[in-house]
Amino acid sequence: MSQPVRRRRKRFPFHIVVFLAPATLVYTVFMVYPLADSLRLSLFAPGEAGREIFVGIANYLTLLTDPLWSDRFWGALKNNFVFFVIHMLVQNPIGLLLAALLSSRVLPGRNTYRTLIFTPTMLSVVIIGFVWQLILSPLWGVAEDLMGLVWLDGLFAPWLGLEGSALITLALISVWQFVGIPMMLIYAALLSIPDDLIDAATVDGANHYQVFWRIKLPLIWPTIGIVSILTFVGNFNAFDLIYAVKGALAGPNFSTDIMGTLFYRTFFGFQLQLGNPTMGATVATLMFLIILLGVMIYFFIVQRRLQRYEL
């Protein structure tokens, strides 16, 4: 027997609005609005008497095709990719290795190591830049003396000042500072793997290497994916270390110029060069689009193929 269904009008779920409002408001005011406004600004150019005139995508065409601008833009983009690739090839594998070592139960003093390795992450970039400039200084740095202890001082060079090595050196300094973050994230993921799985594998005759490659690594791929995307976003937003060590002109001959320093020079100006807010907004928008593209590639291509296991 079926009863007639009494359709009752559902009350509007006000509590959802109340809970969403703070985050939505804060994000809209401080993130969405400035982002949208810089998008708008990038379609204008300074005109007479401080008025801005609408120019459509002319700024983008200039930035991407006029040799005066495009040399700097593509140079900065290329350098930024080099910066990112070094982080992916050096920072994240070392982070993984450190996390694997720290999560092993046989390593004595691992809490101390964990703290020490994470410490540089909490220091100001300005301090990191200053300290490494001193360490690597050809005049008073300890790097050459330390290399001399192992008879390698012949290989010493003023790396931060040479066109061929300045960017790589800066990237490695940044790796040194931030290696603690992938380490901690992967370490946490490793700790969450149940002991039963590892015990079962051991009983089945797997050695340490097999346990790592066949059991642990497949379980932490999603974390490594997150670490990669954080690295990507962080690197394409990077600015502070380069600015602290090489200044906004990112020498020698723009070899350390990345998107962040290009944006700074363009938007705020530098020395006698006056700031150009509309062109700066164009650079900022392209930075945003590049990051958006990278994140989309990750979510639509990489993330979907990652297999997740219910633990």
Partner: peptide, 23 residues
């Protein structure tokens, strides 16, 4: 002379350093 793009002053920084570096 430093009113336009590229900025002459910034260019002189770059090329003077490169001349001394020998590049």
């Amino acid at each position: 002379l430093s009113r336009g793009e590229p900025n002459l002053e910034n260019q002189l920084w770059n090329v003077s350093a490169q001349v001394i570096n020998g590049t």
